[in-house]
Design a protein around this nucleic acid. Sequence first.
DNA 1: AATAAAGCCTAGTTAATAGCTTGGAATTCT
DNA 2: AGAATTCCAAGCTATTAACTAGGCTTTATT
Lengths: 149, 149
Amino acid sequence: MKLSTKGRYGLTAMLDLALNYGEEPVALKNVAERQGISEPYLEQLIAGLRKAGLVKSVRGAQGGYILAYPPDKITVGDVMRVLEGPLAPVDCVIENEPVSCEKADHCVTRIIWEKIRDSINQVVDSITLQDMVDEYNRINGQKGYMYYI
Amino acid sequence: MKLSTKGRYGLTAMLDLALNYGEEPVALKNVAERQGISEPYLEQLIAGLRKAGLVKSVRGAQGGYILAYPPDKITVGDVMRVLEGPLAPVDCVIENEPVSCEKADHCVTRIIWEKIRDSINQVVDSITLQDMVDEYNRINGQKGYMYYI
DNA sequence: AATAAAGCCTAGTTAATAGCTTGGAATTCT
DNA sequence: AGAATTCCAAGCTATTAACTAGGCTTTATT
């Protein structure tokens, strides 16, 4: 019941982009350095986010990435679902997917999994990157350097 | 972000015991057959539950397992934590465990993980095996045979 | 007392997956 | 032209999940 590094690194990277929203594109090299993540690995993660339309890339020298939308239009759930897949504790309660298990209608444990799924989704869908930026500013105030992660 | 078969099979097995609470001990062989789980594998799972004090065993012929407490005294969370470990999406928010990450005080993503952790725990700690038994009876009513899982 | 039915215990095994690394091509600013 | 970047595909390695195998111990039944 753990998240993978994809979800963790990816959300951190998106927060990094959110903190730099409105400025020049951010090179992945810089994100990787600030956050202590392997750059080529992060490259793979952000490729998924780009294909999902959450970030835009600018190629070539002085290029980098920017959020495709303002931080208040992107939720943690948007990011996590791209990186982790459907946020369901078991396959039989993945949203918008037909249930293959023939016992589903009589299954009591399935009801538990649905409740867990819903509670997770309620959390991640109610928090935007802007909320995280605000929290970042509240916690780290006028400090001279950036604590990200 | 998926549960393992330990959590899934284990909760199903505990529901099986709860449905038989107050009667003779239930042999693992029967649980395994009803639920379609490999018996020796289930044996390992229930060993953990026994060591955690959630079930009692009766050895020898006609032996088996019984819940150590009435079904309304055992929560889904009790069971899941034994089988899956702490229900935290990342290690840095495991309850009652010192945080090793030195950035924790300045970490914004960590707040997200805490909220996810809390929402999961709120769900599983508020549902008892008795709740599941009641739901089972509501769904399956007077049917002739048992749909478990 | 013998037998069979159960739980108990430890150690394999196997396939999949996570978490990267490697290498190079394409693009664009300076 | 050259450097800085994104883009793409493949390969690698250690860990883990999900079992299986085999044998010992306990106890009700006959």
